[in-house]
Nucleic acid binder design. Sequence first.
DNA 1: ACGTGCCCTTGACTTTCGTCAGGCAAAAAG
DNA 2: CTTTTTGCCTGACGAAAGTCAAGGGCACGT
Lengths: 254, 254
Amino acid sequence: MTCPCRVLCLVPKPECSKAQGQLPRHRATGPGLAKQVMTLPLFSGLDHHVLERLMADSTALGLERRSLLFSAGSPADCFYIVLDGQVKLSALTPDGRESIVEVFTPVSSFGEAAMLSNSVFPLHAEVIEDATLIRVGRRAFVATLKSDPIVGYRMLAGMCRWHQRLASEIHHLKQIPPWQRVAEFLLALTDTQAGQAVVSLPFNKEILASRVGIRRESLSRVLARLRDMGVSTEGNSVRIDDVASLRQRCAAAQ
Amino acid sequence: MTCPCRVLCLVPKPECSKAQGQLPRHRATGPGLAKQVMTLPLFSGLDHHVLERLMADSTALGLERRSLLFSAGSPADCFYIVLDGQVKLSALTPDGRESIVEVFTPVSSFGEAAMLSNSVFPLHAEVIEDATLIRVGRRAFVATLKSDPIVGYRMLAGMCRWHQRLASEIHHLKQIPPWQRVAEFLLALTDTQAGQAVVSLPFNKEILASRVGIRRESLSRVLARLRDMGVSTEGNSVRIDDVASLRQRCAAAQ
DNA sequence: ACGTGCCCTTGACTTTCGTCAGGCAAAAAG
DNA sequence: CTTTTTGCCTGACGAAAGTCAAGGGCACGT
């Protein structure tokens, strides 16, 4: 279902009659929501009022698991921001198997590429965990972008930083062995620098395996092997006995 | 050595006293050069005069093999366009081994990310085949970018397309077995849809191996295996006996 | 209570990749 | 002309990932 509050009011104003807190299942509203959105690489460093102009014809969506957002080939007249839940982008291989390209968790965005290129979505997008999304319409976004040079500049810089991340992931996939990718993934989930840490996996192991580029059976084996290094898993929660030592092993091995 | 023509004149004007044809070992000059530069995703769809403003304080470089363009950590006050030759971007792993992140061949650009992010280069850049480059200075580029909204918009779209390419490469590395990545790399080098095709490798096999994410020994074995599928290699040239059939095998296997 | 589907794990087996080592040919350097 | 370097191939071996198959634990609905 579509959120009753069709037009987003990121920053409530006196003349705004839209009720706040209507985003289904989502905690932040108003300024809090804006703050979350600003953490996106695309929007980093932009002013509130610019953000409002960019998202002038955006709508909020509450979607249930298995909803199809769009499929490959459909026209890209918007892009999406994930506030809650999870959305999976996948491609269908020629023989009909599905290959998960990416999973988006809060707070992230996807589809800008297709929208700005004025083309169609190249992938399927499916909600895999009941989600709250913002659907950012093309018109206002592009209009704002064209009217203010600084906006484009900031967004460009943000995209560039994101590119570095992608490039480094490519580097990882090529040079780092799977067990280490798993270990580093786990380490990236915690802020603690030494001693023990407990992290909870942001998604199930099927998808985690896909993220690091191995089969789920292999992931099981890797996790079994990591047990010898003081990493114990139980359901969604993972306990790392000695963060520093694991970090060191990763650095040393490679 | 630095090109004697320090300031680029993409489109020669009456008052421009710089001699044309001074770019070492490079064929195109003036309008031809501009045409080449415009093929970059970053510049796609921009006008000539905008291009000139963007590149106002750019210089041409002729560099020999093994020249170090920049190393990780040095301030990013420019980016580079490869007109001729090859430049390798690499990282040094903790144990001192080198890992090649990317190789840039004509016509491509690199370093925009670091420059626009106002930070430092994260990688080493080394010329691996005598090269002709354009060094695009930060000042004029950013100034133009900030003054003209359309420029930023176009560049953003270009970056987004590039982003799709990176994302798809990540997908490949995760889901496609090495021999198939090699096969698809070869197939991507030719336009022919059926029958025989002869392609020449754009770089040596050490680097090709690095591109597809395997060791050079493995590449040798893969190429040996591909021989059974009608792919014969001899030095830099590769002959594919039946393009269509190889394509089909790639599609079927996965 | 029972069946069903989902998620995860494990074992046995196959395939492949990485590593170490050796060797060959052509080009470059002495 | 000899030596060195460079690029490439190949064999042997071990480690590791993929594949196939089976089974356990758990939540769910009936």
